[in-house]
Design a protein around this nucleic acid. Structure first.
Lengths: 163, 163
DNA sequence: ATTGAAATCTCCAGCGT
DNA sequence: ACGCTGGAGATTTCAAT
């Protein structure tokens, strides 16, 4: 279980993964070393999975965002299909979902031709029976704020970046 | 435009946002200060949008992942609806998509009751005409690897974390 | 968890392409 | 513009308590 200090530290690092340990400690009522210890232990426990950079998708050659529903032939081909997805850098996410489809994929490609190429790769596995693609025209909300804590008091949230 | 050094730096920071400048420089064939300059300029240009922590969703009280399609009443209520979504921490993403629905939402909640509560909040706006929810049973691939560069040589990729 | 100290890193000059 | 070297100050990280 996470205690209050853990939550405050995690909330800070979600807002800025390079926040100094001293500042994390201050937010949690701890010394810099204690904050550092918390981060190390949370990482060991797997609560913290890593720190990553958020980049402008268009600038890194992935300006088109799409969602692809797929239906597969059967359990026999499923494992191989998932392995193909895992290895394909255009596929960001793959979720086994309830409903009419086997998987929902979140994909990022450079352009529409890239989406067609990706669908070709999926078909080439032989596992794909049917698919349905949707393109995101715009994204009013995106990966900006990664799942914060439910019901955390505003006073505990990191200070807003005021542009 | 990004040059080769920019791409190598960004790839490194995607793997670990706390990589020291000296190491970034080494990967890109630059000094630590030059790497620092690159990061500063990429951030100013908006290519780098920030550094964030990836946490275990279950550990932070968001163990249930869902996707919600919504159809709205019309353009008049759309803006207010989007504002509600933006303010709701359970809504991670909101995409305007092609097809039969207005928006596709990616949501994270603690449990099924949390999903019901979220749908209640969406209905309460008065803008929602119809919705269709799907729950992710499992996620063979998730936010682990954020959109890497297309066609980057393996030799330029950051060293794998070998557990 | 804390303090203190050492090792490391950031980040600013100053200067040269 | 873009890079390098050097160094002061901040930060991380390891002891010892």
């Amino acid at each position: 279980m996470l205690d209050d200090a853990d939550r405050k530290i995690i909330a800070r690092l979600q807002a800025d993964a390079r926040t100094p340990m001293a500042e994390l400690g201050q937010a949690a009522g701890l010394s810099a070393s204690a904050a550092h210890d918390r981060v190390r232990r949370l990482t060991e426990r797997g609560v913290i999975r890593g720190m990553t950079l958020r980049a402008d998708p268009a600038a890194i050659g992935r300006g088109v965002l799409g969602f692809v529903f797929v239906a597969l032939g059967g359990p026999a081909v499923e494992a191989a299909f998932v392995e193909t997805l895992r290895a394909d850098p255009a596929v960001l996410e793959c979720h086994h979902v309830t409903g009419d489809w086997s998987y929902l994929l979140k994909v990022r490609v450079a352009d529409i031709a890239g989406l067609e190429a990706l669908l070709g790769r999926l078909k080439a596995t032989g596992a794909l029976v049917r698919s349905h693609s949707m393109i995101a025209l715009s994204s009013p909300k995106d990966d900006g704020a990664p799942s914060p804590f439910p019901d955390m008091p505003l006073s505990d949230l990191p200070p807003e970046v005021t542009p």
